[in-house]
Design a protein around this nucleic acid. Structure first.
Length: 241
DNA sequence: AATACTCGCAACCGCCCCTTA
DNA sequence: TTAAGGGGCGGTTGCGAGTAT
């Protein structure tokens, strides 16, 4: 049994937002703020789901959003953070002022992952594709597990727990490729990580205010939550309120 | 000029976590 | 203590615009 719908879907409009709807939503949020989203549609005079209103506001109408193209610096930061965090788009977006998680996710899916592939880097693990092919070949010759034995661990990726800590080390060794200029010659050592790990942690703490948990603690939660119960599913991002 | 294909992005879906009664 | 509901998140889809054939 799933969750009940958050709104009456039969009487809710879907699809692209009109300028009139945007104006209503902006007018409402500018005077009343963004408190209870489920009540926003009714109060603002919109035939929309509250979630739809929230999404429209946070991804498009919110003040201080950037709508121009991503800069080279932003690209490199996204790649760096993706190597560290995986697809925690909201956390990555927190480090990019004026960008939303949807922006970052779309940009990654449409551009950055392709750029990485063009350079011979696997966009999931951030490792050279040739290395991965070698790993797959090694796995293929392993004997099958005995009957009743525990299932084998997942294929490791950078943002799984054991690799999270290792990544910091690798970062210090400047091995992670972050430069994704497709025109540049593909060379594993052509560009190196620019982001300072401790700076990232400090930024994260500052971004969440004084009452936010220490960033190291938050990262600890990521590591603990990365493989709950030993299965392959990544842990969800710990929420910071 | 018409059609097919690709790309970019806005929006939706469904799951999960947290809060609250 | 527990269940319901709200909010947040990542994954996916749909569609318009641009480009290639």
């Amino acid at each position: 049994m799933g969750r009940p719908p958050c709104c009456d879907k039969a009487n809710v409009k879907k699809g692209p937002w009109t300028a009139e709807e945007d104006a209503k939503l902006l007018a409402y949020t500018s005077t009343h703020g963004t408190g209870n989203w489920t009540s926003v549609p009714q109060r603002a005079g919109l035939k929309r789901c509250g979630k739809s209103c929230r999404l429209r506001y946070t991804n498009y109408l919110r003040p201080n959003l950037k709508h121009e193209n991503f800069t080279q610096e932003e690209e490199e930061l996204i790649v760096t953070l993706h190597a560290m965090l995986g697809s925690r788009w909201s956390l990555i977006a927190n480090q990019l002022p004026g960008r939303t998680d949807n922006d970052v996710k779309n940009y990654w899916n449409t551009k950055l992952s392709k750029k990485l592939r063009q350079r011979g880097i696997d966009p999931i693990t951030h490792r050279p594709i040739a290395d991965l092919m070698q790993s797959i070949g090694t796995l293929a010759i392993r004997p099958p597990p005995a009957a009743g034995a525990a299932p084998p661990p997942c294929l490791p990726v950078f943002h799984d727990a054991p690799y999270f800590a290792a990544l910091q080390h690798q970062h210090q060794q400047q091995q992670v490729v972050t430069h994704v200029d497709a025109d540049a010659p593909a060379s594993p050592d052509s560009q190196h990580l620019q982001l300072n790990w401790s700076d990232f942690l400090a930024d994260d703490a500052a971004g969440h205010g004084a009452d936010a948990p220490a960033p190291q603690a938050a990262l600890g939660q990521y590591q603990e939550g990365s493989a709950p119960g030993g299965n392959c599913r990544l842990g969800r991002r710990p929420r910071v309120r």
